[in-house]
């Protein structure tokens, strides 16, 4: 597996150089733009941008593999497909860590140079904030990767996009459906929102130790399930 991970880094060293430049650059631009107006929606924007940068940064190399069609090249080498899948996970997680470290370092650097800070960023830059964000990204990656590996990069990317869109649009879509059937059937999807709210409330009330235990447990189970699904389906996938 190390050979496969090594080949990813040999093949994509230019890409790693590029993300090493563009992540700090975009983080700096975002921070500079919100210097006078920290808090509220800007923190949300900054968090989303950071997450997107990291996940994007760790996945682009996989999508690049499709353009070169090198999947076939590696599948024809004396290496098991399960090893190929595991190496993709490890490479993606390494790049995720690397991207996230770049985001944190860039933020700290901008603050130290500009002398600015905001309490709203304290949580984001605390150990708890970093762990939560990192955990969240691993979960996201764990659901994105199987679709990419099972359906191929192009179809997988479309499926991931639709699922992510559905997830973000869950509330408005539920409202539209409710209104559409108003008078015909009484639909009530508010339980979904209540469920999420109670889950968030539950986590915020937990002690740090419990929160970390739950996070770790979820990550281990999620990553394992994701990897098992990817291995099972990728092993029997036709590589065209």
């Amino acid at each position: 597996m190390i050979k496969l991970i090594k080949k990813d880094f040999i093949s994509y060293w230019k890409f790693i150089l590029i993300i090493s430049g563009y992540i700090p650059f975009l983080v700096s631009i975002a921070l500079w733009a919100m210097m006078d107006d920290f808090g509220g929606i800007w923190i949300g924007f900054f968090t989303t941008l950071s997450l997107a940068l990291c996940i994007f940064g760790s996945l682009v190399f996989l999508i690049n593999e499709t353009h070169t069609n090198s999947e076939i090249l590696y599948a024809s080498l004396p290496v098991e497909r399960s090893t190929i899948v595991m190496s993709k996970y490890v490479t993606a997680y390494i790049l995720l860590c690397y991207s996230y470290i770049l985001v944190i370092l860039s933020t700290l650097f901008i603050f130290s140079v500009s002398g600015g800070n905001d309490k709203a960023f304290d949580l984001l830059l605390s150990i708890r904030g970093i762990t939560m964000m990192f955990g969240f990204m691993i979960v996201v990656l764990s659901y994105i990767l199987p679709f990419l590996l099972i359906f191929g990069m192009r179809k997988g990317a479309v499926i991931n996009f639709i699922i992510s869109l559905l997830f973000v649009m869950l509330k408005p879509v539920a409202d539209i459906i409710e209104n559409l059937f108003k008078g015909i059937v009484e639909l009530n999807f508010s339980f979904i929102e209540e469920y999420f709210q109670s889950a968030v409330l539950f986590v915020t009330k937990l002690s740090a130790a419990d929160a970390y235990t739950i996070l770790l447990g979820t990550l281990v189970i999620g990553v394992n399930l994701s990897m098992m699904a990817s291995i099972k389906f990728y092993s029997s996938r036709d590589l065209e």
């Binding site: 090594k6 040999i10 093949s11 230019k14 070169t68 090198s70 999947e71 076939i72 090249l73 080498l77």
Partner: peptide, 23 residues
């Protein structure tokens, strides 16, 4: 393969360095 699918941005030495350890 009819289309060897090598990374076009790499040179032959780099391709060798990638493939050789597998055998």
């Amino acid at each position: 393969y009819d289309n060897p699918n090598y990374y076009e941005h790499l040179n032959l030495q780099q391709i060798r360095n990638i493939i050789a350890p597998f055998y």
